[in-house]
Design a binder for these strands. Sequence first.
DNA 1: ACGTAACTGAAACGACTGTTTCAGTGCCGC
DNA 2: GCGGCACTGAAACAGTCGTTTCAGTTACGT
Lengths: 192, 192
Amino acid sequence: MPQRTPTPSARQTELLEAAYAYALAHGLADLSLRPLAEAIGSSPRVLLFLFGSKDGLVRALLARARADEVALLGRAREPEAPVGLVPAVERVWAWLAAEEHRPLLRLWAEAYTRSLVEPDGAWAGFARATVEDWLAALADCQPPSERDGEAGAVRRTLALAVLRGALLDLLATDDERRVSAAVAHQLALLRS
Amino acid sequence: MPQRTPTPSARQTELLEAAYAYALAHGLADLSLRPLAEAIGSSPRVLLFLFGSKDGLVRALLARARADEVALLGRAREPEAPVGLVPAVERVWAWLAAEEHRPLLRLWAEAYTRSLVEPDGAWAGFARATVEDWLAALADCQPPSERDGEAGAVRRTLALAVLRGALLDLLATDDERRVSAAVAHQLALLRS
DNA sequence: ACGTAACTGAAACGACTGTTTCAGTGCCGC
DNA sequence: GCGGCACTGAAACAGTCGTTTCAGTTACGT
């Protein structure tokens, strides 16, 4: 069975990378082929040739963003053995709070809520997919005794909620001190 | 000094209410005057006459949504004396988790993230404004001894993060049991 | 050298966008 | 009756949208 995107040619990934950078800067909501093409030194004709349609391009951009996301999730469980939710949340938050990741996180938030309002088209299922990605990654960080069973799922859900809620606050207010203190406060609560 | 919207005429509020119902069902992202006008039995001509421009209409819709939001916030602190963050979060979450409020909450999430990506235009400042609204409402629920000082602000921030993060999860997965259990788990943590 | 495939430029297509122009309604105070 | 005010319908405006058509150009295997 061939891949869904038959063969990502060199030119294709090159343009995708440029378009991704453009999307990080300008958002996906009112992305338009002509301004995008001009900004990355291409043409609408070529983008449609390589990605089939605008929806195909958006899907490719969303997949590209998700690649960055799974890289982050991999880092959360990385230091060999899973050591519990608390250090996992700590590490992930350090990443989320870093200033240089904010364009990606804004893009992610945009795609997330868009897929809630408009469950069809290129955005379909994005929100649900990322929730499942994150919960699975957090599960990998739980000790086996805690991982299974409903209580473990609840703890993962809570950890994810704190991270997401804090991220939303941070993106809106840029008040890293207050928000990071709130996350730290939660970690202290969880440790006690 | 006259109001910003000089006089919301009867016809204006009537059409706004209809447009609001339409926006709750279809979202604001690709709202378009002609389909909207036809759905609510009006015309683009009239909408522009009454609201000045499409941006004016969107601003009015956002303000209308915010009216629902402040009503909710008022309910959080209502039972006479503020009694601490824990019961406040409990009450607010019961409201957020109610099925019938989901269209409003989707609309709210959409406006929130949109204002993050595109800080100009009709959406400007929406995210920051709601964060401040909510933090202020939660502050009113804290006992005076806790309200002031940095520790109080951190506790409010954490409470808000849990509510927002849990809401995002709920909107994506519709798994009320798991998410409500996570909120309850946090409340138990806070009580101990 | 030739054919074939990948890629590209220029221009047009029809549909849709917010907005404007012009021409009216109906109603209310005088 | 009449002037003005709030509101409305029909049609057009200029612009942008995604997409298509047609005509190339480049590079490479054979």
